[in-house]
Design a binder for these strands. Structure first.
Length: 709
DNA sequence: ATTAGGG
DNA sequence: CCCTAAT
């Protein structure tokens, strides 16, 4: 894989250390890299120093200078960047190169969504594009206007207030620095937030219903888009801020967004030193990318990195820090596919636009408390206002039939396995991911119902029968998105045949090797995945297949599902546990060799060789009897022997696969016994060995077998 | 590179 | 079959 670790470092990197260099060197990177970075760093430092000067000046000049400062902030905290600020492109380029600041990265994104991004966007076409536009516009404004400071600020404030619900803090300061901070802090998250904010203001709040019960489907990646777009799904409730806490830093291995990553990358690199966890992710990604694992997130303190002096401004650093943390985590959340497990604590958007960290959705209690028997399955559809209608509806039913309330925070999403050649570009990687996702989505989705972690397969049973009728059990209820078994074979490509397999580690789908997706080496083509469209269709069509109460499965649900956000009700514990598995779960990256059962003749040859050579000399066995069988390694032979021995020791009824003649099995046992005794070390002659084996064999099996020898 | 074992 | 540790 080409993807370097650093790319995925995630958000940690947020801060820009005054002395960027240190961390890196400490890290001990490859030589090449080091060199490059150093040079970059130098440049960066220069810029930084300049920035610092500028900052000072501006400060000294005091209020009047606000305009001056304005520009800087926008650019991203990086004072250094400032110079070039006028020109978007250049600037951006610079920042990135330096890799010093996430902020800059941010900038970049705004300024130029590239094709790659588009790819991702494709998945959520509407939304993303909109977002971009918005962002762009925002930035543009700020930059262009001399007064920009004010504008920018306002924007920021707005976003903050909206998101954070902490209006007061931001508002007050009009300092250019503040604005900077805002930018910096938020970094990526910020963008999104802004989007949301804007959206919020503009659009009717999907979650408008104050009702906490609403189902919140979260689709991290999509969230933004959702907001902007008309999509029904609930908006992500800003989880970024609140959720994180609970989860405390869980991190996804793969994250959806390039955007985020892009920005984060550099910074992360630095932070890497303190955050081992991320690294793991990288590694994993590096190989392939599976978003499967959650990592333990960095502790809160990680978030508290020191800020660059120039950034520290009137704004409360604490606040900022927090924000950063959130942002970072948020990203994590966003990972869009991968199985996610959430805690009960999910954040819900409150009617006022504020977020609450408390879990509203999840806990049925809260919402449902009111009426235990009441029916309320709510799917929250902001756009359509479905939720409300549904609710009302149910209420009416209420008396008739006991109703079960469901609050679906998210869906569990199947794992994706992606492989791309190292030579692939990041862009192609992105596209590959898109394709992979598209393939799955395009193939159709089904919703699975999990109770106590187990899949409920019987669609015909009633909820009551299934045991999900009682409110108590709702916690253990989960929904998963599953690709339809019949998958459309995805497009393949060049270089390596990477395979994409939707894999469900446990409860979801079984691996479908059938769906290999390869990166289309085609570079720039903008990936335009029609899939989205299909999705709807598919979902729609599949709807019926989903069986549990039809009521529950609504369009909203489905459509939301496309967002791929899943939040099954799970315990916090689970969350913690799931994550670190990376290791245990060998990344499916390397695809397993195809299974090739040993034929009887092969077994024969193996047995013969072992009889002569004994166990413990697998290489010789290989040379002796499987010289030509490239696919049989000595390890394979050894393993086969192992299984043969086992097979020979169990009852015939328990054996599976192509039956091995008892005769051979007997020889296996005999040889095994013999060589066990001899410690397999003696180089006894073949003949001798054979003889002995024969004896042993005879002994074991009785006279009748002798003839076989 | 092999071996030995556990998964 | 895979993965690792130990040779």
């Amino acid at each position: 894989m080409v993807v370097k670790k650093r790319q995925y470092y995630g958000f940690n990197g947020f801060h820009m250390p005054p002395v960027p260099r240190a961390p890196r060197s400490a890290r001990g990177r490859g030589l090449n890299k080091m060199k490059v970075e150093d040079s970059q760093i130098c440049a960066f430092e220069l810029l930084a120093s300049l920035a610092g000067k500028l900052l000072q000046e501006s400060e000294s000049s005091a209020s009047s200078n606000a305009s001056e400062a304005n520009d800087q902030p926008i650019i991203g905290g990086g004072g250094g960047v400032k110079f070039e600020q006028d020109d978007d492109r250049p600037l951006k380029a610079e920042c990135l190169d330096h890799g010093s600041c996430g902020e800059s990265a941010l900038f970049t994104q705004f300024s130029s969504p590239n094709s790659d991004q588009k790819c991702l966007l494709n998945e959520f076409p509407h939304a993303e594009s909109n977002l971009f536009l918005e962002r762009s516009s925002m930035i543009t404004n700020s930059n262009s206007s001399k007064n920009g400071g004010a504008d920018l600020k306002s924007v920021i404030c707005k976003s903050k207030s909206a998101c954070e619900n902490i209006p007061g803090k931001v508002e007050g300061s009009s300092d250019s620095r503040m604005s900077c901070d805002g930018y910096v802090d938020n970094g990526l998250s910020r963008q999104k937030r802004c989007d949301r904010l804007d959206t919020r203001g503009l659009i009717v709040d999907p979650c408008s219903s104050n009702d906490p019960m609403e189902m919140c489907m979260k689709f991290p990646a999509l969230i933004n888009s959702v907001n902007n777009v008309e999509l029904p799904s609930c908006r992500d409730p800003v989880p970024s801020a609140s959720i994180p806490r609970h989860r405390n830093g869980t991190k996804l291995g793969i994250r959806d967004d390039d955007e985020n990553f892009t920005r984060c990358n550099k910074p992360l690199t630095k932070s890497k030193a303190f955050r081992p966890p991320q690294r793991i992710g990288d590694r994993r990604i590096r190989k392939l990318l599976t978003s499967k694992y959650w990592k333990v997130a960095p502790k809160l303190k990680d978030c508290e990195f020191s800020k660059p002096a120039f950034l520290e401004g009137g704004v409360k650093s604490h606040y900022l820090k927090r924000k950063l943390c959130y942002s970072r985590e948020r990203y994590q959340l966003n990972t869009f596919y991968k199985r996610r497990k959430f805690t009960d604590h999910s954040v819900v958007v409150t009617s006022d636009g504020g977020f609450s960290s408390e879990s509203v959705c999840n806990s049925p209690d809260k919402n449902m408390t009111g009426d235990k028997n009441g029916a309320s399955i709510m799917f929250h559809d902001a756009a359509n206002g479905v939720s409300s209608s549904v609710i009302g509806h149910q209420a009416s039913f209420h008396s008739k039939d006991s109703q079960v309330k469901f609050s679906i925070k998210s869906f569990r999403v199947p794992e994706l396995l992606i492989e791309v050649p190292e030579s692939a570009t990041v862009g192609s990687l992105k596209r590959t991911v898109v394709e992979a996702v598209s393939a799955i989505l395009g193939g159709g989705l089904r919703v699975g119902v999990l109770l106590h972690g187990k899949k409920v397969r019987d669609d015909n049973r009633t909820l009551l029968q299934t045991g999900i009728a009682s409110n108590e059990n709702l916690d253990t209820l989960g929904f998963s998105l599953e690709p339809t078994p019949v998958q459309v074979s995805p497009p393949l490509c060049t270089e390596d045949p990477p395979a994409l397999l939707p894999c469900d580690t446990s409860q979801l789908i079984s691996r479908s090797p059938a769906t290999p997706i390869v990166d289309s080496g085609v570079s720039d083509a903008l990936p335009d995945p029609p899939p989205l469209t299909n999705l709807d269709t598919n979902i729609e069509s599949n709807r019926e297949s989903v069986s549990f109460h039809a009521d529950i499965v609504t369009d909203n649900t489905l459509s939301d599902s496309r967002a791929l956000v899943a939040v099954p009700p799970v315990n916090a514990e689970e969350l913690a546990m799931v994550p670190l598995n990376q290791k245990s779960k060998r990344s499916e990256l390397v695809q397993r060799r195809t299974r090739r059962p040993f034929s009887v003749s092969e077994v024969e040859a193996l047995v013969h060789a072992v009889e002569e050579l004994g166990t413990g000399r697998w290489r010789d066995v290989k040379l002796c009897s499987f010289e030509d069988a490239d696919h049989r390694t000595y390890v394979d032979l050894k393993d086969k022997w192992k299984t043969l021995v086992h097979t020979a020791q169990i009852a015939p009824q328990q054996r599976r696969g192509e039956p091995v003649p008892q005769e051979l099995l007997d020889r296996v046992l005999a040889a095994h016994a013999y060589w066990s005794q001899h410690q397999a070390k003696q180089h006894s002659k073949n003949q001798t060995a054979t003889l002995k084996i024969t004896d042993a064999h005879a002994v074991r099996n009785g006279v009748e077998d002798i003839q076989s020898i």
